[in-house]
Amino acid sequence: MIKLDHVSLKYPGSKTLALNDVNFEIADGEFVFIVGASGSGKTSMLKLLLKELDPTSGKVKVADYDYSKLKRRNIPKVRRKLGVVFQNFRLLKDRTVYENVAFAQRVIETPGRYIRRQVPAMLTLVGLADKYKSYPRQLSGGEQQRVALARALVNKPEILLADEPTGNLDPKNSWEIMRLLEDVNKKGTTVVVVTHNKEIVNMMRKRVITLKKGEIISDEAKGGYIDED
């Protein structure tokens, strides 16, 4: 579950609010798009969910953790319930596909015998079983994003956060990634996709939260992409 309760955010030195009194709730198992032009506050919101930033006022609750009461040393605990995918993939360039996915498990100290079992299974799921020895630079953008997705999913997160996951991909690869996200969602993971890909948002008919200048201007159950003008 994700809940933002009257959340406002102001960056130090800035005069305007990056987020202004934002309220919404995302239930377990939902698939939600967060859309808006650049500067609308999408990325700030994602940073709040990951507790990279703290709100100026209001409350953020993710996976039963109230961030305002969360102790520093417990931050890793929350993050282990979240999987994240980025627009620019953020893979480790000096490691193979296998190592990139295994890295996510090593970091949270998963025993080696689980790593050896779960990493190949995850690579099969995203369709990259035969490329486990490749390095990121040897892969296409779509393949790299699938590695990033495998890395985000291998720790079985409750919530998957995707920041412009199709931003660097052509339409064919974009759809492949969206199909994978939908599969993951069907298996019970909550999926939150931040995007400005109009075509995808309009085709998938999921819940859409639209942000404009830090405020929610629309929140529809089977919404479409609202043009700025």
């Binding site: 890793p76 929350v78 994240v84």
Partner: peptide
């Protein structure tokens, strides 16, 4: 950065 986001302890 990635380690921290994945939930590595300090």
């Amino acid at each position: 950065g990635i380690m921290k986001l994945i939930g590595a302890t300090n």
